[in-house]
Write a protein that binds this DNA or RNA. Structure first.
Length: 814
RNA sequence: GCCGGGGUGGCGAAAUCGGUAGACGCAGGGGACUUAAAAUCCCCUGGGGGCAACCCCAUGUGGGUUCGAAUCCCGCCCCCGGCACCA
């Protein structure tokens, strides 16, 4: 085929098509799930199949993961590299509404397009194990997982606020609320509404989710994001007794400042508000509570806005000073964090300071800086107590313990850990998701759908759009909605909410190896063999939600004895992001890179390799159209070398030392870099190698022997798989280049026999001398002194000291 | 505001247990080949000075530590990401 081109030059389109077909025919990329001896599960984040098609960010992520998988395969492992589609969810649904087409009709076409694009990228995917979250064969088991959690008491129903657009009469996601208004109705203020929703009590797993992070081989950046998301803070709960009856418990991380607590602030929804409000304050308090309740969740939580609040008329006793202090309500205190009430210490908290200043409340200084003048609010821990009775003079850290212990004696304090992480609300008042498998019966209450009745199919209704009826789309379909109670048989109703897409993706990696079974979500034996995942590569945009939920679901399944590991991903690496010409890619800027165009113009191998060359993989980089040319030239040169070879060197022939040495150095460098995902420098090393083979300033090798080319092609194979296969074949091999062994290097052959030793005088480079490696300091100094330039700069000065870094430099201090 | 990551030639970037700054590539310049062009090949290419051997300056910015700092420490500026009234 390629021979039909007159000059037999490199034609990517021809050889890429040829090898894609070969791989299919020979089942090169299929994994023997049952028989594999050295299983290596190489996972990448399955995409949401958008209508726009695969974007360059997907390509970057997948290619980087694929290269790692191919590298592991060449190391002799049985690599399993599956792919699937995360096609449920609000993105698909909103797009379907926009183009007025049912998502069930839209998605298959999108998936088909993605599959083709993924094929063109030359990924080593095993398509026998494809997964699609919208397939009833898949979401049956998503529902099954819900039931497992329900039965374990980890799925509970509770009221929670949602964003509600009075015009759409539907629930909005936070990102659909723009400055307090509906994205579709810019004049309509979004309000919060309380709905009964299903929650997974992930907070029961907080400590484990946090502590396990220590032992995971994950990108540090990802672990940090998770740690911050969990947001552990250590403090105490303090009791403020209300003389007229009741107690208000506050959470604080600064019990040391309790002597400065001059008022309390409750969240407007706090249950004690009713009780402490005085009759004359009631109209104002009620008005404020109504105002807070009407706000959308996003605006309500927004910081930095002007503080508002009202006095309730009630008082509570400060447990440290014994004084009665006023109780206020304000929306800067959130019901869902801590106890929904705070002790306000305006002298030492910026928010309380702002509030006190605004409403003329007392500000008391109880901590003085260790050094420097006082200036309130002083929020640092680096201070000593004042105006705090017997605790005066104590350092803050010490005072926290002492004061907590002192109040604890009188049962007014208890040490406490508080977390930012909330329970996971999985209810979505939408259409495009797996129905939550619950039935409500007037007699029996909430009844789970029996396992034998799974899946609860999502009906293919045409009016999937949210309308002004005020109920979920599914509730409008009586034939689906009305169902007999599985327990008592009386008329009952289905749950009409669907589950969050993050539940779909929280277990997909468990399904891939087990796609040939429909009677169980994952096979025990196969799961034991292939999991946990050995390498997971993806973006940090999923660092907290997806990765946290996947860890949580895995822990639950472990505790239910369904799997024998509790962390799903042994190793995770976050890749970087790609920008274009220094700016973020966006449609409005018109700088979006469409992979298809570059693949059509340059071939997938060049495109893959350029993506990996444009910057460090874990940091991302700048995509410049002109960059493709360099890689293309590089592959052309390799191609020319392969064409020029006349096979193995004749027996006894001496290979050029310089090239052999560079080859071994290159194998070493590339091997090390691949393991660390340092693809850009690995490619640079391959370029350096061919520059040496081709001669550079020295005489070129007209016809390099196979010994110098075979290893190069294997090193290149993970980056440019089609190209490498073609070269491998042309070099006379019959097996796939991915079924051979990664080359070994010989440390002795890689060693230089002469190195350039830098000679510094007083830290400035003054000469470079060629010396054999391994000199002692005395020998090095002696050689340096023998150099003319060195003598000139020493200018007869006396050497006070010599610093020698073996084989690198010698520094003479005069 | 807080927590991360980053700032190096005209451009993308190398080099961080402190040890030759700018590997590799792009762009640019010069030359070879060609009737010519493209492609390819060879050489040059951080700034300044010098006929030259060479010298001086240079890793956001100001200090510091060190024989020696892109790398470590302190202050400041800018860019990217995350969190954001979390008590």
């Amino acid at each position: 085929m390629a021979a039909s081109h007159s000059n037999d030059s490199y034609h990517p389109a021809v050889i890429e098509a040829k090898w894609r077909q070969r791989w299919d025919e020979r089942r090169t990329n299929a994994t023997d799930i049952e028989g594999a001896g050295k299983p290596f599960y190489n996972l990448m984040m399955f995409p949401y199949p958008s209508a726009e098609g695969l974007h360059v960010g997907n390509a970057f992520a997948f290619v980087g993961a694929d290269i790692y998988g191919r590298f592991q395969r060449l190391q002799g492992l049985d690599v399993f590299e599956p792919m699937g589609f995360d096609a449920f969810g609000i993105h698909s649904e909103n797009y379907a509404i926009k183009v007025n087409t049912h998502p069930a009709r839209l998605i298959p076409a999108n998936i088909e397009r993605f599959r083709e694009q993924l094929r063109r990228l030359g990924l080593m995917l095993d398509w026998d194990h494809e997964v699609s979250t919208t397939d009833p064969r898949y979401y049956k088991w998503t529902q099954w997982i819900f039931l497992q959690l329900y039965q374990a008491g980890l799925a509970v129903k509770k009221k929670a606020p949602v964003n509600w657009c009075p015009e759409c009469k539907t629930v909005l996601a936070n990102e659909q609320v723009i400055d307090g208004f509906c994205e579709r109705h810019p004049g309509v203020a979004v309000i919060q509404k309380f709905l009964e929703q299903w929650f997974f009590t992930i907070t029961k797993y907080t400590e484990r989710l946090l502590n396990n992070l220590e032992k995971l081989d994950w990108s540090e950046s990802t672990r940090l994001l998770q740690r911050n998301w969990i947001g552990r803070s250590q403090g105490a709960e303090l009791d403020f007794v209300v003389p007229t009856g009741g107690t208000i418990t506050v959470f604080t991380t600064r019990p040391d400042t309790v002597f400065g607590a001059t008022f309390l602030v409750l969240a407007p929804e706090h249950p004690m508000v009713e009780q402490v409000t005085g009759a004359e304050r009631r109209p104002d308090v009620n008005a404020y509570r109504r105002h807070a309740a009407d706000m959308d969740i996003v605006s309500r939580r927004k910081g930095g806005k002007e503080k508002t609040g009202v006095f309730t008329g009630g008082y509570a006793r400060n447990p440290a000073t014994g004084e009665n202090i006023p109780i206020w309500i304000a929306d800067y205190v959130l019901m869902e964090y801590g106890t929904g009430a705070i002790m306000a210490v305006p002298g030492h908290d910026e928010r309380d300071f702002e509030f006190a200043t605004q409403f003329g409340l007392e500000i008391r200084e109880v901590v003085k800086p260790v050094a420097g003048p006082s200036s309130l609010p002083f929020v640092s821990y680096d201070g000593v107590l004042v105006n705090s009775g017997q605790f005066d003079g104590l350092h803050c850290r010490e005072a926290i313990e002492k004061i907590t212990a002192w109040l604890a004696e009188n049962k007014l304090a208890v040490p406490r850990l508080q977390y930012r992480l909330h329970d996971w609300c999985i209810s979505r008042q939408r259409y495009w998701g797996p129905p939550i498998p619950m039935i409500y019966c007037d007699a029996c209450g909430a009844v789970p759908v029996p396992e034998k009745d799974l899946p609860v199919l999502l009906p293919l209704i045409e009016d999937f759009r949210p309308d002004d009826s005020g109920v979920s789309p599914l509730a409008r379909h009586q034939e689906w909605y009305r169902v007999p109670c599985p327990q008592c048989g009386k008329a009952a109703r289905r749950e009409t909410d669907v589950s969050d897409t993050f539940l779909d993706s929280a277990w997909y990696f468990l399904r891939y190896p087990s796609t040939s079974f429909d009677d169980r979500p994952f096979d025990q034996k196969i799961t034991k063999k292939w999991l946990p995942v050995r390498s997971y590569i993806g973006g940090n945009e999923h660092a907290v939600l997806h990765l946290m939920y996947a860890r949580f679901i895995t822990m639950v399944l472990h505790d239910l004895k369904l799997i024998d590991f509790e962390e799903p991903f042994t190793r995770f690496r976050a890749h970087g992001t790609i920008v274009k010409d220094g700016a973020k890619m966006s449609k409005s800027r018109g700088n979006v890179v469409i992979p298809d165009e570059f693949i059509a113009d340059w071939g997938a191998d060049t495109f893959r390799m350029y993506l990996m060359f444009l910057g460090p993989y874990q940091e991302g980089g700048d995509f410049q159209d002109s960059g493709m040319a360099g890689i293309s030239r590089f592959l052309d040169k390799v191609w020319a070398l392969v064409r020029a070879t006349r096979g193995a060197a004749p027996p006894g022939a001496q290979l050029p030392t310089r090239v052999v040495r560079k080859l071994h150095q290159t194998i070493r460098k590339v091997t090390d870099d691949m393991a660390e995902l340092h693809y850009n420098t690995a490619i640079a090393a391959l370029m350096e190698y061919i520059n040496v083979v081709r001669g550079g300033e020295q005489a070129a090798i007209a016809s390099p022997p196979a010994e110098l080319l075979d290893p190069l092609i294997v090193l290149l194979a993970p980056f440019a798989p089609h190209f490498a296969e073609e070269c491998w074949e042309r070099l006379g091999h019959h097996e796939s280049v991915f079924d051979v062994a990664w080359p070994d290097y010989d440390e002795a052959l890689a060693r230089e026999d002469e190195i350039a030793l830098v000679v510094q005088i007083n830290g400035k480079v003054r000469a470079r001398i060629m010396v054999p490696p391994g000199l002692s300091q005395e020998q090095a100094v002696e050689r340096a002194l023998a150099d003319g330039a060195v003598q000139k700069f020493l200018d007869g000065g006396r050497i006070k000291k010599a610093v020698y870094v073996p084989d690198r430099l010698v520094n003479l201090v005069v």
